[in-house]
Structures are given as structure tokens and as C-alpha cells.
Amino acid sequence: MVDLLKRFEKLTTAHVADACLRAGMPVRTVSLVPVTSGRVAGRVLPARHVGSVDIFLEAFETAEPGDVLVVDNGARRDEACVGDLVALEAQAAGVAGLVVWGLHRDTVDIQAIGLPVYSLGAMPTGPLRLDPLPDNALESATIGEWTVTSADVVLGDEDGVIFIPADRVDQLLDLAESIQATERKQADLIRSGTSLRQQVGFAAYLAARRERPSLTFREHLRGVGGAIEE
């Protein structure tokens, strides 16, 4: 997945989200905070946390270099489920980063390790419970409203993370790059004195909408090659 990370470094999760929308696919994003600087891109290595670190150690047994551990802790706010030792062990196993649907701890130590980690936030308390381990705890992870597996790829940056099907990565990144190129041209024109309203023919859109109230701005943008909303 080295090439994937190298290609993603030139994009953002926002570009990929817009690419999913344009491709008619679900936009599987969640808002998570990066604990360390740096982006992450790799195959999903799912793990459903039930209160013990051994589920992560078991996941690392089958990890491939560049995988990203995606931890499902049900968005719990009463415990941290990963810390510095998990981050260190992940790094030693060749895992490229951690995405945690829950909380982390040991923030300073994790930042010193340097492995990309994304979570809902931090708290000092670790797990205080031990629930039964489901048979499929390493087959999938539910993050927000999305359930992901090793057939998915996760991309993360300062805006959060997005999950995309591994078999459609090239198509979506091609679209994302096209959207990015259009937006850069639009930004350059704004800086040089041509407003975004001028670029997208906004006055013409308003006039056309008066004639056809059902006309949406997205329809108009497709006609003029804009890339503001998708």
C-alpha cells in the first residue's frame, strides 16, 4: 500500500468524498481527530474491542505491511481502548496506523512514537470491563453507521477518515485528482480577481432557476464543469 499512501498524500479525504459522490457510491466518512501528524492509507485490519488488548495482538498476527488497524469500540466515552503499547506493537508489526471508533490514552507517548492514530478523543481510564469475545471479532468493524472489512481501504487526514472499496481505489482516486485539479484552477482564478460566482455563471443559474424552479445548483455545475459540491 506504499503507492496508495504516496498517491493519497497529494489529495485530501474531502476530494475522495466528492469522488464517491460523483461515482454514485455511499460516502463512508466519520469525523475523527488525528492524534499525530501524518496521513494514513491502507487496507482495513478490523478488530472489535471487548475490553482486552489481546484482540489487537491477534489481529497483528495476520497483518500485512501497510494495513491499518480499525478498532470498533462502539464510540464508548467511558474508557480508552488503545494506548502507547498498542501503537508500538502495531508499528513493530508493520501496521501503518490506527483508526479508533472510541477513545485513546497515552497521547504524549503516542505522539512520540509517530504512528498515525485517529480517535474520538482521549481519556486516562483504560477498559474496566471484559465482555464475551464474538466469533467474528476480527472479520469486521462498525465505525459510525458503516461496517468495514478487509475488502475496504481507509484513508485519513486532518478532516477525518473515509472508507472506500479496495477494488475501486484507482477509479476513485482518478476522480479525486480530477476534482482537485478543477478546484485548484478555481482557487487561482479567485486569487487573480475572477470570483467564484463569475466562474460558475451564478447569475445565469439564478435566471435559469426562475424559469425552471426544479433546477439544482449541482445540475448547473455539471453543465459548466464546476466541482464545488461533488
Rank of each mutant, 00 (worst) to 15 (best):
T13P: 08
A14Y: 12
A17T: 02
A19F: 03
L21G: 13
M25A: 12
M25C: 01
V27S: 05
V27L: 05
S31V: 10
S31M: 12
R39C: 13
A41V: 11
G42I: 09
R43E: 07
V44T: 11
V44R: 11
P46D: 07
H49L: 11
H49G: 04
H49A: 14
V50H: 08
G51M: 07
I55Q: 12
L57M: 14
A59W: 00
T62V: 14
E64H: 07
D67Y: 02
V68F: 06
L69D: 03
V71F: 00
V71T: 01
N73Q: 04
A75S: 15
R77K: 14
D78S: 12
D78W: 03
D78E: 12
E79Q: 15
A80K: 05
A80P: 05
C81V: 15
V82E: 00
V82K: 00
V82R: 00
L85D: 00
A87H: 09
A90M: 04
Q91L: 13
Q91W: 02
A92N: 11
A92E: 12
A92L: 12
V99G: 06
W101S: 09
G102A: 07
H104K: 07
H104L: 08
D106H: 15
D106P: 03
I110H: 00
I110M: 15
Q111T: 10
A112I: 06
G114H: 07
S119G: 13
L120K: 14
